[in-house]
Nucleic acid binder design. Structure first.
Lengths: 118, 118
DNA sequence: CAGGATCCCATCCGATACTG
DNA sequence: CAGTATCGGATGGGATCCTG
C-alpha cells in the first residue's frame, strides 16, 4: 500500500496505509520492547528478502513510525527503534494481534509468533 | 489482499488478510448500525466501481464477515448485514478509525466520513 | 554488515460495457 | 436493481546478484 497524504475513503484507510505493508506490523511488533539491528530483524522475519525488509523499513521511517540510526563502526551497524508516533499505534497492533489469535485458534492454526505480548 | 488460511507471519497479518482490501473496512463500517442494500452501499462508497464493490462484498461474505440475502421481488433487492463474526471485529475498526482521525487531524486533512461513531 | 540494482511475476484495482 | 465480463494499468512482492 501507498503511504501518501491523498484522500482516504475513511480514517481506517489512512491507518492501513501506514501499517498495511506485508511485513510492517511484524516489524513494529518486534520493535515494541527494544531497538533492533537490521540483522536481528532479518533473522526474526526470515522469509522477508533483504529488499522487502529494507523497503518496508524505509516506508516506516518516512512515515515517522520508526527511527533509523547508523552507528559508524567496523562492521557497521544500524539500529531501528520506534518513535513516539510509532508507539502510539501499538494499541491497534495489540488489538489486531489478539483478534487474529482468536481467529487462528478457530482454524486450529498455531500462530508462529507473538501469541500475546508480555 | 488474499484471504486464505495459509501461514501468516503474525496474527496481525491474519487480521489484515480479512479487512485489508481497499473498501472492506469502509463496507464493514457502514454496516455496523444497520443492514444496507447494494445500491445504498454503492452510493455511500461512490468511488468504488460496481466490480470492486461486489468483489469485496463477496470476499467478506466468503470469510463469514457479512451475510448476503437476496429478496426475490421486482425490482430485486439484496441486503447485506454483519454476521456475529463480523461484529466481533468492530472494536478494531473503531480503534483504527480513532487513530486515523488523530493522524489526519495532524495533517490538517478533513476525514470524509465516520469521524466518530455514535 | 546493511543494504541497493535489476528483472520479473502475481495481484490489486479501475474503466467501460453489458445482462438477468 | 444488482450485479458480471473484459481489458489493461498500477502496485506489491520475490529472486538473484552486487557493493560501500
Amino acid at each position: 500500500m501507498k503511504c501518501e497524504k491523498n484522500q482516504f475513503n475513511c480514517p481506517v484507510e489512512a491507518t492501513l496505509s501506514l501499517i498495511g505493508g506485508k511485513y510492517k506490523p511484524l516489524i513494529l511488533w518486534h520493535l515494541i520492547d527494544h531497538p533492533l539491528h537490521y540483522m536481528e530483524l532479518q533473522r526474526l522475519i526470515s522469509n522477508a528478502t533483504p529488499k522487502m525488509l529494507s523497503q518496508q523499513l524505509h516506508d516506516l521511517e518516512n512515515n515517522g513510525m520508526i527511527h533509523r540510526e547508523v552507528i559508524p563502526e567496523k562492521p557497521p551497524k544500524t539500529v531501528y527503534s520506534l518513535t513516539p508516533f510509532g508507539q502510539s499505534i501499538v494499541p491497534i497492533l495489540d488489538a489486531m494481534c489478539q483478534w487474529g489469535n482468536n481467529y487462528l485458534d478457530g482454524l486450529d492454526v498455531q500462530p508462529p509468533c507473538c501469541q500475546s505480548r508480555k
